[in-house]
């Protein structure tokens, strides 16, 4: 059995297990709740990774798309519109917004793009906070009814599967090569015929649509959303951290990162306020300095007994 078949088989088994969980687990409520979060975060991290990992365009403002999805669904369902319309509308609106900001922001490169995204994220939060007639301002929005937990669970699972499958497909496709080339050297990519701005915009659009759906599921799960929860900087931070923990630019890394992220949050958030974010900060520093390829990098290193790639180990300047 070659590696490809092996990993496909592993995915199949994991998926079968995930589908079986609701029917076999004892304490199903709690287990479902935790797994729901893992899948939702996994989908969100995978979506962020399409742009941040594959194309190397690190965004600190991705909460904007989650927020747009969440608010669209919340507002439309309050008007009595079916979820079958509300959720796609949220995704498309998030996607449309991504085009509005992507077209100017992608004139910026690397770190400049990242800084601009902090501004974009903060600006959307402020707008949500101040557009009271639409969003209810700081007091947020409450949804009337939620689908049963099992439906939410399968929705999150489905979104996660779709995101990861999409990432896996992109990785080996022509589009994936464009993104990888952009990440490494956008100028060289251009001279080889890659329309870098178009590719980046497409990646951002896909990423935003997936986050829009995630936002809808988020709203339906918690039944309450506010600018500080869905549009908050904390959300954007989480989106950056999960893929980095797992392995930036990989297919399964963000999902792994989501597991670790959810676990650390569950463990620490209860003990001491902000201890989780402190831990994430330390983790981020450690990963960046010692193994920028995250958990998957560590696994790779253990497996092959290799040293880290030379230029990461080297203490250089310039």
């Amino acid at each position: 059995m070659d590696r490809r078949t092996a990993s496909l088989a592993a995915c199949g088994v994991a998926l079968a297990a995930a589908i079986a969980v609701p029917f076999v687990a004892s304490r199903a409520e709690y287990v479902l709740d935790v797994l729901f979060l893992v899948f939702l975060y996994g989908a969100m991290a995978t979506a962020w990774n399409l742009l941040g990992g594959f194309a190397g365009q690190v965004s600190f403002g991705h909460a904007a798309f989650l927020g747009i999805g969440a608010y669209t669904t919340a507002i439309l369902t309050q008007l009595g519109i079916s979820l079958w319309i509300a959720v796609p509308a949220g995704a498309l609106l998030a996607g449309a917004f991504s085009l509005v900001i992507g077209i100017p922001a992608f004139r910026l490169r690397g770190p400049y793009f990242s800084i601009a995204t902090i501004g974009i994220g903060e600006a959307t939060r402020l707008i949500a906070l101040n557009w009271t007639s639409l969003t209810g301002g700081a007091s947020g929005l409450t949804l009337a009814t939620a689908p049963p937990l099992i439906v939410q669970y399968f929705a999150a699972l489905a979104l996660c599967v779709v995101s990861v499958a999409l990432a896996a497909w992109i990785k080996v496709s022509r589009f994936g090569y464009a993104l990888a080339a952009i990440r490494q050297d956008p100028d060289a990519a251009e001279t080889l015929g890659v329309a870098t701005t178009v590719a980046k915009t497409q990646a951002l659009f896909l990423s935003a649509c997936l986050l829009g759906v995630a936002g809808s599921i988020y709203a339906l799960h918690y039944l309450f959303i506010s600018p500080d929860s869905v549009f908050g900087f904390g959300t954007s931070i989480g989106l950056v951290i999960m893929p980095i923990i797992g392995g930036l630019g990989t297919v399964t890394g963000p999902l792994l990162g989501a597991v670790v992220y959810t676990f650390i949050r569950e463990q620490l958030a209860a003990t001491l306020a902000n201890a989780d974010l402190l831990a994430f900060g330390l983790l981020l520093i450690a990963i960046v300095v010692f193994e920028p390829r995250g958990i998957l990098g560590i696994i790779d290193r253990v497996r092959s007994g290799k040293k880290p790639p030379p230029e990461i180990a080297a203490v250089g300047d310039g």
Binding site: N274, P292, G316
Partner: peptide, 23 residues
């Protein structure tokens, strides 16, 4: 340690430092 790496790496490192200080 990260001066030679891609700019995004130093950005992420300092982002981590910020998170640590803040929290």
């Amino acid at each position: 340690r990260v001066l030679g790496a891609e700019p995004i790496i130093s950005l992420l490192l300092l982002f981590g430092v910020w998170l640590v200080l803040q929290n």
